[in-house]
Amino acid sequence: VTLFVALYDYEARTEDDLSFHKGEKFQILNSSEGDWWEARSLTTGETGYIPSNYVAPV
């Protein structure tokens, strides 16, 4: 499993987005949709879409 870490804070803009804080780690569930990836936060357990340019591989 490839994990990603948040480089910046992000505040959700829609109900499908996932808010997160810098340093939070994610498991990517689906990265085939372009710039927005479906991810699960390893901190909160919540699932939603995150901007791929806000995260980097651990």
Rank of each mutant, 00 (worst) to 15 (best):
E24Q: 07
F20E: 00
L29I: 13
N30I: 07
G34L: 12
Y49R: 14
Q27M: 11
Y54R: 07
L29G: 04
L7H: 03
I28Y: 03
A39N: 00
V1I: 15
T47M: 09
L42Y: 08
E11V: 14
E24P: 00
T43C: 07
G34N: 12
I28E: 01
Y49L: 14
D35C: 06
L18Q: 03
T14Q: 11
S52T: 07
F26L: 09
V55M: 09
A12T: 05
T47K: 12
T2V: 13
T2P: 13
T43I: 10
Y54F: 15
H21F: 12
F4G: 04
T43V: 11
T44F: 02
V5G: 03
R40S: 07
K25V: 13
L42D: 05
F26D: 00
K22Q: 10
T47I: 14
P51L: 09
V55L: 14
D17H: 15
A39H: 00
K22Y: 06
I28S: 02
T47Q: 11
V58C: 08
R13I: 12
E15S: 11
L42E: 08
Y54I: 06
D35Y: 12
E33R: 12
K22E: 08
V5E: 10
E33G: 14
S19T: 11
V58D: 12
W36H: 07
E46A: 12
Y8H: 13
E24S: 04
S52K: 15
L3C: 06
P51A: 04
Y10I: 01
P51I: 03
V55D: 01
L3V: 12
D16P: 05
P57G: 05
D17I: 11
G34D: 15
Y10N: 03
E24M: 06
L29A: 06
T44S: 14
N53P: 06
W37C: 02
S19Y: 03
W36V: 09
L42V: 09
I50T: 01
S31N: 15
T43Y: 09
E46H: 12
T47L: 08
Y49D: 03
I50Y: 00
A39I: 03
V58S: 07
D17P: 02
Y49A: 05
D9A: 07
K22I: 09
D9R: 04
G34H: 10
E46V: 10
D35K: 12
Y8K: 09
L18P: 01
L42N: 05
L3K: 05
Y8T: 07
W37A: 03
S31Q: 15
V5W: 06
T44N: 06
H21W: 11
K25I: 13
S32D: 13
K25R: 14
I28T: 02
S41L: 08
S52N: 06
R40W: 10
I28H: 01
E15Y: 11
Y49H: 07
S32C: 06
S41E: 03
S31C: 06
E15V: 12
Q27Y: 14
T43W: 10
T43Q: 10
V5H: 05
A12G: 13
T47S: 10
D17Y: 13
D16Q: 12
K22T: 09
A6H: 00
F26R: 00
T47H: 08
L42W: 09
T2E: 11
Y10W: 10
G48V: 02
V55P: 01
D35W: 08
S32N: 11
S41A: 07
Y10P: 00
Q27I: 15
V1S: 11
Y10H: 06
W37N: 01
D35T: 15
V1W: 14
F20V: 04
E24K: 01
A6G: 04
Y54K: 09
L7G: 02
L29N: 05
L29T: 08
S52E: 04
V5M: 10
Y49S: 07
K25C: 07
P57N: 05
D16G: 15
L3H: 10
Y10M: 03
A56N: 06
F20I: 06
Y54A: 13
S41V: 06
K25E: 09
T43K: 12
E24N: 06
T43M: 10
V58R: 03
E33D: 15
Y8N: 07
